[in-house]
C-alpha cells in the first residue's frame, strides 16, 4: 500500500499524479493521511494517529480504511 513516488500534494489538499496527469482534491483528513503515507508510515501507525486525534470508532475507521484504499487504487496513486 505504498504511495507512488512523485505524488505532489499541496497544503490545500490538492494531489497531482505526475504519472497520469490527473488532479484530485481531498478533505482535510485525506490530506493528513496522504502526508503520513508519503512519510512512509504504515497503516497501523496512521490509524492509531487518527484514532488518537479524532472521535472515530475503530470499526468505523476500519471500514473507511478499506474504502480509502479502494479510492487510492482507483486513482492510480498506489505503487504495487
Amino acid at each position: 500500500m505504498k504511495l507512488r513516488k512523485n505524488i505532489a500534494t499541496s497544503e490545500n489538499g490538492f494531489i497531482f499524479n505526475p504519472a497520469t496527469g490527473d488532479s484530485y482534491s481531498g478533505n482535510a483528513i485525506a490530506a493528513e493521511i496522504l502526508s503520513m503515507m508519503k512519510n512512509g508510515q504504515i497503516a497501523e501507525e496512521i490509524k492509531a494517529t487518527i484514532l488518537e486525534k479524532y472521535d472515530a470508532e475503530p470499526n468505523q475507521l476500519d471500514k473507511d480504511w478499506e474504502d480509502w484504499m479502494l479510492q487510492l487504487k482507483q486513482a492510480n496513486l498506489l505503487d504495487e
Binding site: 499541496s10 490545500n12 489538499g13 490538492f14 497531482f16 488532479s23 482534491s25
Partner: peptide
C-alpha cells in the same frame, strides 16, 4: 501551472 486549474476547480 496545473495548480491554477486545481484552484479554480476546487
Amino acid at each position: 501551472d496545473v495548480s491554477e486549474f486545481q484552484q479554480l476547480t476546487a
